[in-house]
Amino acid sequence: MHDIVRPGSVPAPLSVSIDAARLTYDGVPLFAGVNLRLEPAAITCLLGPSGVGKTTLLRMIAGLAEPEPPTTVAAGDGLPLQGRIAYMAQQDLLLPWLDALDNVLLGARLRGERRSAALVTRALDLLARVGLEGREHDRPAALSGGQRQRVALARTLMEDRPLVLMDEPFSALDAITRLRLQELAAELLAGRTALLVTHDPLEALRLGHRVHVMTGSPATIGPALEPPGPPPRAVDDPAVLSMQAELLRRLAS
């Protein structure tokens, strides 16, 4: 067991509201009038079939996709979201000329932060927690797809941001590693506001305080399911298994 070297304090809880979100492609609306609230200090999970617009919605919140009017994305405190977001894309986006450690430290490097011993220790500890102890000086070309995704996860969790956006963060992992890293993510996201896009109902129910399904054409987001108890929940929890059937029903509707 490794003890995480944490930043000085968890940022104040942040709520985020997405209202009247709209996206069109070649004149065809993919979604319109989509509303979603990210509750403060909670993990919100979003499921839906491929191509429904989940990733684009995530990118709108991150400021990486231009929202179409009348879309609004706003923090509950009224301040800009810029500079307060940690974002993990589906692709690992590692820089091939940097080793695993320097990829985890990339955010601090881009901000011009001093490479302190405490910062390096925390990065090394995160790499160990994601199962890459001893691989910190390997470049991405020497790592498997799943290992690169773990580096990207460590880099995201390294950021001290109140809002964390994650797009299929465990998709390249084997089943056991996936479960273990879900538990790590739940631990390190405690006290932060997070939106997790996933195709896995069980993953959503293990990690989410609130779970939404995005379906239809144009797509809409349905009401939240709220699994009982804090995450991460056991995979054999009867309530989780019961809700999984309801999620599958919603996905198929």
Results as ranks from 00 to 15, higher is better:
residue 2 H to M: 10
residue 3 D to R: 15
residue 3 D to H: 14
residue 4 I to V: 10
residue 6 R to Y: 07
residue 6 R to W: 10
residue 6 R to E: 13
residue 8 G to N: 13
residue 21 A to S: 02
residue 21 A to H: 01
residue 23 L to H: 04
residue 25 Y to Q: 10
residue 26 D to V: 00
residue 29 P to L: 03
residue 30 L to E: 03
residue 30 L to N: 09
residue 31 F to M: 13
residue 34 V to F: 05
residue 38 L to T: 05
residue 42 A to G: 13
residue 43 I to K: 04
residue 47 L to I: 01
residue 47 L to W: 07
residue 48 G to W: 09
residue 50 S to D: 05
residue 54 K to S: 12
residue 55 T to Y: 08
residue 57 L to N: 02
residue 61 I to V: 15
residue 63 G to P: 04
residue 66 E to H: 09
residue 68 E to Y: 15
residue 72 T to A: 09
residue 74 A to Q: 15
residue 75 A to G: 15
residue 75 A to T: 07
residue 77 D to M: 05
residue 78 G to M: 07
residue 81 L to A: 00
residue 81 L to D: 03
residue 84 R to I: 03
residue 88 M to P: 07
residue 89 A to C: 00
residue 91 Q to T: 13
residue 93 L to D: 08
residue 94 L to G: 00
residue 95 L to A: 06
residue 95 L to H: 08
residue 96 P to Y: 13
residue 99 D to S: 05
residue 99 D to M: 03
residue 100 A to N: 01
residue 101 L to P: 06
residue 106 L to I: 09
residue 107 G to T: 13
residue 108 A to T: 04
residue 111 R to M: 01
residue 115 R to N: 14
residue 120 V to L: 07
residue 122 R to A: 13
residue 123 A to N: 06
residue 127 L to Q: 01
residue 127 L to Y: 11
residue 128 A to M: 00
residue 130 V to Y: 00
residue 132 L to W: 05
residue 132 L to P: 06
residue 133 E to V: 09
residue 134 G to P: 14
residue 135 R to K: 14
residue 135 R to M: 11
residue 137 H to V: 13
residue 137 H to Y: 15
residue 138 D to A: 15
residue 140 P to I: 03
residue 141 A to I: 04
residue 145 G to E: 10
residue 147 Q to W: 01
residue 148 R to P: 02
residue 149 Q to R: 08
residue 150 R to N: 08
residue 152 A to V: 07
residue 159 E to Y: 06
residue 159 E to D: 13
residue 161 R to W: 00
residue 166 M to Y: 02
residue 172 A to F: 09
residue 174 D to M: 05
residue 174 D to A: 04
residue 178 R to F: 15
residue 178 R to A: 06
residue 178 R to L: 10
residue 181 L to A: 04
residue 185 A to W: 11
residue 186 A to W: 05
residue 187 E to R: 13
residue 193 T to E: 08
residue 193 T to F: 10
residue 195 L to K: 11
residue 198 T to K: 06
residue 207 L to A: 03
residue 207 L to H: 09
residue 209 H to A: 02
residue 211 V to H: 02
residue 212 H to D: 11
residue 212 H to A: 14
residue 213 V to R: 06
residue 215 T to F: 00
residue 216 G to P: 12
residue 220 T to K: 03
residue 221 I to D: 00
residue 221 I to E: 10
residue 225 L to M: 12
residue 227 P to K: 03
residue 232 P to V: 05
residue 233 R to C: 08
residue 238 P to Q: 05
residue 241 L to P: 00
residue 243 M to E: 12
residue 243 M to A: 11
residue 243 M to I: 01
residue 246 E to H: 01
residue 250 R to T: 02
residue 253 S to Y: 01
residue 253 S to C: 02
